[in-house]
Design a protein around this nucleic acid. Structure first.
Lengths: 121, 121
DNA sequence: TAAACATATGAACAATCATTCATATGAAGG
DNA sequence: CCTTCATATGAATGATTGTTCATATGTTTA
C-alpha cells in the first residue's frame, strides 16, 4: 500500500485525502480545460482533418475541396465554418469563389508533427 | 483570377484540375487520417482532459478521480477505458484499488504544451 | 465462504454532431 | 435587371457518444 501522510485508505469515497487536496489545489481552471477540449474536438473529425491536410499543401476553393474529398459542397461549407470559427483557417474571396487556407504556420506545424507522429507508430 | 496551367475556371465541379490532381497525389492515405482524427477525438472531451490533467500530477485510483472531478465512479471508469484503449494511460492494480497513470512522458509533454499554448492566447 | 469494498461493464437515455436537402446570399456576365 | 454560378445557411435526420443505473467481476478480510 502506498502511504500518503499516513492516509492510505478510503474515507467517504475512498479518497487519499492529501493527494486529492494537493491535486485539487493545482488544477487549471475548468474553463481553460474546457477550451482545450473544444480545441481538440475540432481536430477529432476525419472530414475536418482531411480538409486541413489539403490546405496544408495549397489554398483551395470550396468546390475543389468537395471534388478532392468526394463530398457535397454543403457538407464542406459547414465544416469550413467550424474550422474558421476555431481560427484554424482563413477565407479570401475572389470573385464568385472563396479560397481557404491555413490560418498560420502554427497550424501548419501542428498538423505536420501530428502526421509524423502517426507514421512512427 | 489565379491561373493553374491555364485552367482557371470550374469544369464539372469548379475544379482547378492541376491543383486538385497534385494535392490528390500527395494525400496521406485515408486510414492514416482517420486514425489521426480518432486520436484527437480522445482529447476532445473535457472529462477526459480533466482526468489526464490530474494524472499529469499524480497517479490516482478511480474513486479519488471521481472525488476530484465530482463525478460518479461509473462515468470515470468508462472514460478511463477509452483513455486506456488509446494507450494514453496505464493501469496498475494494488489490492482492491486500481491506480492509473499517464502512459509515458510523451503524453505528459503533449499535455503540458497544450496547456501552455492555451495560456498564450 | 460470506460480506464488504473497488472497479468494470452492459443497457438505456439524452445530448451532440455530421451530413443532406432545400433555399438564400452574393458576385459576374449578358 | 436577369440569369448563372459559387458559396452559405437553416431545418431535418441519422449516427455517435457521454452519463446514469443496475449489476457483474475481482480482491480482501472477517
Amino acid at each position: 500500500m502506498p502511504e500518503q501522510n499516513g492516509v492510505e485508505v478510503c474515507e467517504f469515497l475512498c479518497a487519499h485525502e492529501s493527494v486529492v487536496a494537493e491535486v485539487r489545489a493545482h488544477m487549471p481552471d475548468e474553463d481553460t480545460l474546457f477550451e482545450l477540449a473544444e480545441f481538440y474536438k475540432v481536430f477529432g473529425d476525419s472530414t475536418r482533418i482531411r480538409i486541413l491536410t489539403v490546405l496544408c499543401r495549397h489554398e483551395m476553393c470550396v468546390c475543389d475541396l468537395a471534388t478532392i474529398l468526394s463530398m457535397n459542397q454543403s457538407a464542406i461549407s459547414h465544416q469550413l465554418r467550424i474550422l474558421k470559427q476555431a481560427r484554424l483557417i482563413t477565407a479570401r474571396r475572389e470573385g464568385k469563389q472563396v479560397f481557404y487556407s491555413l490560418a498560420d504556420d502554427h497550424v501548419h506545424h501542428l498538423l505536420d508533427t501530428a502526421i509524423e507522429h502517426l507514421a512512427e507508430r
